[in-house]
Design a protein around this nucleic acid. Structure first.
Lengths: 322, 322
DNA sequence: AACATCTACTAGAGCGCTCTAGTCACGAGC
DNA sequence: GCTCGTGACTAGAGCGCTCTAGTAGATGTT
């Protein structure tokens, strides 16, 4: 910076002004400084820049490197953050890198706020984090003091799935749940409510959130087939594993069995899978998250939980029962 | 920091010493400072800490948020970096966030080096980046001045796949390639060489790197089935799309057709897919990458490309031809 | 007793920026 | 001619650390 200032024949402060696009420099000087800067290959040091400010405009995000849905969400968050003038720093959660570790590394970078995708931390751990900075949990309906929640209305999502199947003429519908995964409870109870409201008996089979869980569920299913004509699963990943295993049996999809996923991940849309699913509105989740964070940071206590309405994406794994 | 120093009755410098685990403080004082620190919830500001140092020990990583293999690699990189005393900062590449953008944001954070997973940038763009800091490309065999390469021996990987199929008795083997994806050329030519060496005629069908590409390839394949008994695909994702579509046809896997993937992603191992595949050694790729970066940063010019040998993971999608 | 050598600690500069509080020159207004 | 305002620019402190140089006191050495 010093060098740029010298080359342009101005003070360091003016270089700062020019690079911040702040008022207080004539067009001629501005051009001269920028020319000097690019000649020397100068780029302002982002960290030093933040050091002096109270506001860093840096948001920390934890995500699961293995969850395709998290990938979609991260992408949406980048756009939403940029639009609001925030910067994102990512920290991955993986089998060998637990969530507390991922969070700690974000804290070291003095993020202004923490955005946690489907956090598995206990409510008390989340509250403790929320004491030092705003914390937003996406996709998990957690009640923890000081923690804001932005999520999809999973109960409504399950209802959409059930109603879609009802409208096709199904009456015996099974739900294979997500176990303890964030959101699983809501999707399960949403299914139960929708079934009861239609005067039908709900049936829930334990499942999980990975392809392997879905495949296992399919084996259990095939082993002693319950008298159902349709299945709703916790998410697309599980649905994928389920479908793959079912295809190896004599059952035809959707003729013998209709299947509905959840999340509308990129994979569900693939022509060969063509999975009927419930779409979470990632763009809305992302912008609402940033809005919430911004409100917290600027002193206005935000009203959460923010609940986004999902939509049904009918594709080819659902049809009227035989 | 000031507050901690005051509470512990010492100078700021001593607090620094204690938190850096540097010599020069008595055990008693050390304990007192740490107690004061935790009472006040003090955590050193990572950014400010790096500011004064020439070495930041911060490595920037770009990865594709949609590629499961990148997820595996990121995880391995975290461990390798930590073991060598480096810190990682991630920057995602996504449809709405192109690679140059991801790289720029890393540069703003003054990373000591850039680690690019399967970069799509041109050699000249890569060289330009390498002028200001070390650049390592993982998984793409690119020749660009100053750019180090750490990759799997993809040619050997393809050979492994072909030899595995030969040993089962296959002679008519098709390769569905990865188009312009990094690594595709090596896998394609490796296949061709192995076939010719066995006195067989290579057959290559254009493909791609996503599930959709694999599914499309399967449609083309089924439309006018070539007289082959086995198929090797560019990667597991394409293999997955391919398999899903093939399963809808009359063809049985592996009885009528053997299929080999590439990458050994978590999905390939799932019981329902059970895909025979070529495993890239992510741990080795990661540690070699960190070693290379470290060598560059400490002045020793590293010898690259570093080429890691892949291994065959036989599972249930390959069998002797009918 | 005089000096060297440790250990435990502190003062203060410096990292690369931004920000506040100026200075200075020029022109407008009365 | 005097003030006042304004645009263009600068000096210097400060952000939260680390690092160098140095002090004070205890211990060892001859």
């Amino acid at each position: 910076m010093e060098d740029v200032a010298r080359l342009a024949g101005v003070s360091r402060a003016l270089v700062s002004i020019v690079y911040r696009d702040a008022p207080g420099a004539s067009d001629a000087t501005r051009a001269r400084v920028l020319a000097a800067g690019s000649e020397l290959g100068y780029r302002p040091d982002h960290r030093a820049r933040l050091l002096g400010r109270t506001r860093t405009r840096l948001l920390g995000v934890t995500f699961d490197v293995r969850a395709p849905f998290h990938g979609d969400l991260v992408e949406a968050l980048y756009s939403a953050a940029e639009a609001a003038g925030y910067d994102l720093t990512l920290s991955a959660v993986a089998p060998s890198r637990a969530e507390p570790r991922a969070v700690q590394s974000l804290l070291d970078y003095r993020c202004e706020a923490l955005i946690l995708l489907g956090p598995q931390l206990s409510p008390s751990a989340l509250s403790a984090l929320a004491e030092s900075q705003p914390v937003v949990a996406i996709g998990r309906n957690v009640r923890a003091a000081g923690v804001d929640v932005v999520r999809t209305d999973d109960s409504a999502g399950s209802r959409l799935a059930v109603e879609h199947l009802l409208s096709l003429g199904h009456t015996r519908i099974l739900h294979i749940d997500g176990g303890k995964t964030p959101g699983a409870t809501e999707r399960r109870t949403g299914y139960r409510k929708a079934m009861r409201q239609a005067g039908l008996e709900p049936h829930v089979q334990p499942g999980g959130r990975t392809e392997a869980d879905g495949a296992d569920a399919a084996k259990t299913f095939l082993n002693d087939p319950p008298p159902v004509t349709a299945v709703t699963l916790f998410n697309d990943r599980a649905a994928m594993g389920f479908l793959d295993t079912i295809r190896l049996s004599h059952l035809e999809i959707p003729t013998d069995l209709s299947v509905v996923g959840y999340d509308n991940t990129a994979i569900a849309a693939l022509s060969h899978l063509n999975l009927t699913t419930i779409a979470q509105d990632t763009a809305a989740l992302a912008t609402q998250t940033i809005t919430t964070v911004h409100a917290r940071l600027t002193g206005t206590p935000p009203t959460t939980p923010v609940v986004i309405t999902p939509t049904l994406v009918p594709r080819c794994t659902t049809a009227p029962p035989r």
